[in-house]
Simulated scan of single mutants.
Amino acid sequence: MLKITQAERDAVYKTIFNRRDVRAEFKPDTIPDDVLKRILTAAHHAPSVGFMQPWDFVIVRSEQTKQKLKQGFIQANAEAETLFEGERKAQYSALKLEGILEAPIGICVTCDRTRTGPVVLGRTTNLDMDLYSSVCAVQNLWLAARAENIGVGWVSILHDEVLHQTLGIPEHIVPIAYLCLGYVSKFYDQPELEKRGWLKRQSLSSIIHEGQWQAKSHK
């Protein structure tokens, strides 16, 4: 049995607690190929339902491609801005919510829902388990990148059709996440949205339910 030492355990928790969504702090420094391979290898070792490994990784380096994705973000962000009102809208408008052009590398993580055929061990009851598995790959990638002192930003304000068209992703493949990767000038000591007062972190006690669901306040 492989035992985790206390130092190794502490390093894992340190990485988890210091993971951040990076937007404005990217540096132009190139990520070495061996470092990128380690990060992608970690992502590829995520758990997956039925061991189907439904993910693929589309690596984006082209400035032209990034410009097209940036335009897609601008359109989606303008749509999102209309959903907020008053002070919240002004606060939203002041936030930088992506680093598409600043990050030296973009990675689109996808899910091939047909990878191992129509019947997948463990997905027979909940058909979305393959999507959840791909999100596990995203988290593995994010934590591995942080352990390499590389920042990651998830660009969620982007329509899937923009990713399909710009990256040539087949119609049956589901884009899960477009991630911006690069070395950074700094990591915030708190999540940026928490630091800027968008929302506060929920207390652990408010989200734990013993035995059965209990009505609790989430303020």
Rank of each mutant, 00 (worst) to 15 (best):
K14C: 03
D34Q: 12
A11R: 10
Y178G: 05
I4C: 08
L101Y: 11
F17G: 02
L95P: 00
P47K: 10
L193K: 00
Q202F: 12
L167T: 01
R146P: 03
H218C: 04
L95S: 06
L40H: 00
K14I: 01
G153Y: 11
Q202A: 14
A177D: 08
S203A: 14
Q139C: 06
I74W: 08
G106P: 04
R113L: 15
I105L: 15
I74E: 15
Q212M: 06
I107D: 08
K186Y: 14
S62L: 08
K216A: 06
V60I: 15
L131F: 11
A103E: 09
N149P: 05
E8C: 02
D21K: 02
A76N: 08
S205R: 13
E63N: 13
N140V: 02
I16T: 00
V49Q: 01
V58L: 14
R61S: 14
A145P: 03
L69W: 07
Y188W: 09
A103D: 09
R38P: 02
H159W: 03
I176Y: 03
I207P: 03
V109L: 11
F57I: 06
K195L: 14
S203D: 14
S134K: 02
F73Y: 15
Q6R: 10
F51G: 01
Q139H: 10
L40Y: 00
V120R: 10
Q91V: 05
S93R: 15
R19W: 05
I16H: 00
T116W: 09
D10Q: 10
S156D: 10
Q165R: 13
D29A: 15
K200P: 02
I157H: 02
S133G: 11
I208F: 11
I59Y: 10
L204N: 06
V49I: 01
G72W: 03
A177C: 12
F51T: 02
S134N: 06
V119H: 13
H45L: 14
M52C: 13
K66T: 06
W55V: 01
Q214V: 12
L97G: 09
I16P: 01
L101Q: 15
G99K: 11
W213C: 03
W55E: 01
A215Q: 14
D21Q: 06
Q67R: 15
E210M: 13
Y188D: 14
Y183E: 12
R196H: 04
T41C: 08
G197Y: 05
A7D: 10
R123M: 11
V35S: 03
V22E: 01
Q64H: 11
T166S: 02
A215E: 13
T166E: 00
P47C: 08
A137L: 03
V35R: 07
D21G: 03
L167V: 02
A43Y: 01
P104S: 14
R146I: 04
A137Q: 01
